[in-house]
Design a protein around this nucleic acid. Structure first.
Lengths: 118, 118
DNA sequence: CCGGAGGTTCGAAGGTTCTCGTACCTCGTC
DNA sequence: GACGAGGTACGAGAACCTTCGAACCTCCGG
């Protein structure tokens, strides 16, 4: 558990369980968020910048799930909170997973797909 | 929904949802089963041949989940049931997913790993 | 200093999941 | 024909998940 100033506690990557990760990614809201982060530039993003159609207490819940599943790092800046994917760490422990899920989720949304969903 | 003699009904691949797949793979028992199927030779396997430490009614439940998530095809042979991974179909719709999950799950169990879990 | 935007915590409702035992079915074997 | 192995269907319990509203906190801007 790291605990920097403003950084919310997150599990060490070694303690993260694949089952928890897959559960986290199974939810459409959370997957949508992770998707945006994956094909973002890796920079920090305001939590409020994700257009989730749910109550704010529910959003808090989802951020906690993503944090505890080892997917994101979250920083509390007083007036707002910010998230960052744990890209490299995550990739080291679960190689290929983010790319594959992102690829699958993106397929069918692409403007020029090679093989239509049918 | 296909329905051959003895074949239990399964969803068409097009109707399978990634969320359902990830949920299915999130459970340790089910993931263990899928793992065995992935690094098997693709042949049919008796459902009774998986050493799951759970009641048989619970096993029935898990097989249903795997079936409905589009991961396996199940055949009822009167005295016993058999499963087969929907390998190619699944690979076509969710490219790389099975291999990545299998790879991750296998890492740390391998006899000669390149990078210890640490 | 007051209001609003952004968040957290708490408690509760509603649904789903995992688990099991019991009852029942279907074969193959003795 | 009776028995056991392998399964399914059903019902029930415990745990968990997602969702929300209400109450509260913390900043920044006017």
């Amino acid at each position: 558990m790291s605990s920097m100033p403003g950084e919310l506690p997150i599990p060490e990557m070694a303690a993260v369980d694949l089952g928890a990760v897959l559960s986290a990614l199974a939810d459409p809201h959370r997957r949508a968020v992770v998707l945006e982060l994956v094909d973002g530039d890796g920079a920090e993003r305001a939590c409020s910048s994700f257009p989730l159609p749910i109550a704010k207490s529910t959003r808090t819940h989802h951020w906690r799930v993503l944090r505890e599943a080892g997917l994101v790092r979250q920083r509390d800046a007083g007036n707002g909170t910010f998230v960052r994917l744990r890209r490299d760490e995550f990739e080291a422990k679960f190689p290929g997973l983010l790319d594959v899920v992102a690829g699958i989720s993106t397929a069918g949304i692409s403007t020029a797909r090679s093989a239509p969903v049918r």
